[in-house]
Simulated scan of single mutants.
Amino acid sequence: MSVSLPPRGRGTASNPHNRFAPTRSVAEDDGWYQEETPPSLATEVRREQARTVLTRNQSPDVGFDRSVNPYRGCEHGCIYCFARPSHAYWDLSPGIDFETRLIAKTNLASRLEEELSKPGYVPQPIALGINTDAYQPIEREYRLTRQALEICLRYRHPLHLITKSSLILRDLDLLGELASQRLVSVAFSLTTLDDELKRIMEPRTAAPSARLRAMRTLHENGVPVSVLCAPMIPMINDMELEHLLEAGRDAGARSAGYVLLRLPLEIAGLFEEWLQAHFPERAEHVMSLIRQSRGGRNYDSRFGARMRGEGVFAELLAKRFRLAIRRLGLDHRGEPPLDCSRFCPPGRQMALL
């Protein structure tokens, strides 16, 4: 099986049709010779005026009921990203389009203020950047995540952050102030300590050492941090689980989590292609273990099973995780819950406690 390697700095070489595409095109050799024109892989950013920025969910598998995502698509290019299929809703491919054709919600600040100021709004922690990384590279220019942090600080609204980027340290001033009022926590997604594996699996994310330095800096400045080993991929990075947890603990993490690889919709084909390109000798074994953990399929979307999987491999991974966090002292939450009682939109008198 011949598979093209992705361009350096990108997670995939493919751009499959999205599942909603009304037509499909297939390249055919018509016998006419011409120099092949390399595809453009420059990152394009489209500005969007969002009607709403606060997304609600009722999933029992996640610890939040609302989220804010400043960007659609993600330049980090993680091959396994569960958000890739969402690009189909904009008639774009979950493949290279997801990494190169991004959408920025440039009116995020005004919309977020409107929604938090509505009469009867009841605060609960917002997950900021849960679908795609709020600190992906274009945040340097657009600064939408920083705007959201400024609003949360002004409104005294609690939030959780998950990131793979050291760019988060740019906002240490805001995060430190939020943390002093018990309004923020930060989880770092750490999938490998191997720079080469990181390069091909998550090409435009921060190096593992940079993430750990950022985690340590936040911890030293009073910002509660945790480590999230997600995803764990059989025969690719699962053997690093204990080392990842230990590195996170040493960098200041007080708690930890993990997720077994998820392959919904178009991700399965992209991931299998990636395996054939980078790990052809073990691709079949990797997919066999995944299917054993997903009831014989590439993916099991059932609540309660989709994050952890089932079967021998999944149970062994769960046991290893439990033993490791107990040994490392990560089996407690450590920090008190975020404080929702401080919420007070500007101009409104704070309730007496």
Rank of each mutant, 00 (worst) to 15 (best):
residue 5 L to P: 00
residue 11 G to Q: 01
residue 15 N to Y: 10
residue 34 Q to T: 09
residue 34 Q to A: 13
residue 41 L to E: 10
residue 44 E to D: 14
residue 48 E to M: 12
residue 49 Q to P: 08
residue 54 L to C: 09
residue 59 S to H: 04
residue 59 S to W: 01
residue 61 D to I: 09
residue 64 F to P: 12
residue 68 V to H: 02
residue 69 N to D: 12
residue 74 C to T: 05
residue 84 R to S: 05
residue 86 S to C: 07
residue 87 H to D: 08
residue 89 Y to N: 13
residue 97 D to E: 04
residue 101 R to N: 12
residue 102 L to S: 12
residue 104 A to G: 02
residue 107 N to C: 05
residue 113 E to I: 09
residue 117 S to E: 05
residue 123 P to T: 07
residue 126 I to Y: 12
residue 129 G to I: 03
residue 130 I to M: 10
residue 136 Q to V: 06
residue 153 L to T: 00
residue 153 L to R: 06
residue 154 R to D: 09
residue 159 L to T: 05
residue 162 I to F: 13
residue 167 L to E: 04
residue 170 R to S: 12
residue 171 D to N: 08
residue 177 E to C: 06
residue 178 L to V: 09
residue 178 L to F: 09
residue 183 L to V: 08
residue 184 V to D: 03
residue 188 F to Y: 05
residue 189 S to P: 04
residue 192 T to H: 10
residue 198 K to D: 12
residue 205 T to H: 01
residue 206 A to H: 04
residue 207 A to Y: 07
residue 211 R to Y: 05
residue 212 L to S: 03
residue 215 M to P: 02
residue 217 T to W: 07
residue 218 L to V: 06
residue 224 P to E: 06
residue 231 P to T: 11
residue 232 M to F: 04
residue 232 M to V: 14
residue 232 M to R: 06
residue 238 D to N: 00
residue 238 D to R: 01
residue 243 H to K: 14
residue 244 L to T: 00
residue 244 L to V: 00
residue 248 G to Q: 01
residue 259 V to K: 04
residue 267 I to Y: 08
residue 269 G to F: 09
residue 270 L to I: 05
residue 273 E to F: 02
residue 278 H to P: 00
residue 292 Q to I: 08
residue 292 Q to F: 07
residue 294 R to N: 11
residue 299 Y to R: 02
residue 303 F to P: 15
residue 307 M to A: 13
residue 308 R to P: 02
residue 308 R to V: 08
residue 317 L to Y: 08
residue 320 R to D: 11
residue 321 F to W: 04
residue 327 R to L: 03
residue 327 R to G: 08
residue 338 L to I: 03
residue 340 C to G: 03
residue 343 F to T: 03
residue 346 P to R: 03
residue 347 G to W: 02
residue 347 G to C: 00
residue 349 Q to T: 15
residue 351 A to H: 15
residue 353 L to E: 13
